[in-house]
């Protein structure tokens, strides 16, 4: 043990390493292994510095499934009825009673989300005024980094009628790959609770007519 302790030098001290390598193949192998590990660590560090998103979750891809996101069952009866939730304290998004759920990832602090809020309201009104659509397509919002107070303020400020949920500690934001805001995700819910992500894109609604056409297209309505 004492010998190993003396002969195994500081990891980065090449001078000592080279001197020890003359002692035999064992130390030569150790030297090569150390070099390989240093190479790995340097490459790993380069990857992290070059691609800050490395090691984090990615946004849900179209064709994939939504990560498991647990939301609180709203206290307001109107929201529970809209989402088709009967009871319990939490629910998963694919449990919403709909064929397609459109999820807006937003923040009260995001200038584009503020600008887009009346347009999203317009989209919601168009969905609710279409008798063929209102039970099939449901809309929810998740406010990333927003407290309940901030969500409530945003709702009142823009007169938002669809359910909004707070993600004060950014935990949902992290699961969703820390997307920029606003970001829209749509999931299509199949029979027996299965689902598929059919839309996952950065950006606001823009033109509500065009956006609704697009939603109807990928929803198959």
């Amino acid at each position: 043990m004492t010998r190993r302790k003396i002969l195994w030098p500081n990891l980065f001290n090449d001078d000592i390493l080279e001197r020890k390598c003359i002692c035999g193949n064992f130390y030569k192998e150790v030297y090569i292994m150390q070099k390989a590990l240093i190479g790995f660590i340097v490459a790993f560090s380069f990857l992290i510095l070059s691609f800050p998103s490395f090691g984090q979750n990615a946004p849900p891809p179209e064709g994939g499934i939504l990560p498991k996101i647990s939301l609180p069952v709203p206290g307001a009866e109107g929201y529970r009825k809209y989402l088709g939730l009967n009871g319990g304290s939490t629910f998963l998004i694919p449990q919403i009673k709909a064929k397609v759920v459109l999820i807006e990832i937003f923040s009260m602090y995001c200038p584009h989300c503020q600008k887009d809020a009346p347009v999203v309201n317009d989209l919601y009104s168009r969905i609710m005024s279409d008798s063929n659509l209102k039970d099939k397509l449901k809309l929810i919002g998740i406010g990333v980094g927003n407290s309940d107070f901030e969500i409530d303020f945003f709702r009142k400020q823009y007169g938002i009628k669809f359910p909004l949920f707070s993600d004060g500690d950014f935990s949902i934001h992290g699961i969703l790959g820390e997307v920029r805001t606003p970001y829209f995700i749509a999931i299509k819910i199949g029979k027996n609770g299965t689902h598929k992500v059919v839309y996952s894109k950065l950006g606001g609604v823009g033109d509500p007519d065009e956006f609704l056409k697009k939603v109807k297209g990928f929803s198959g309505f």
Partner: peptide, 25 residues
């Protein structure tokens, strides 16, 4: 021990990044 130490630092650097909801603006 050294390698474990370095890998731990790298893991912390990856996992403990500040969270913020950045606007597309």
């Amino acid at each position: 021990k050294n390698i474990k130490y370095i890998i731990s630092i790298l893991a912390v650097a990856v996992l403990v990044s500040p969270a913020f909801g950045l606007s597309d603006a």
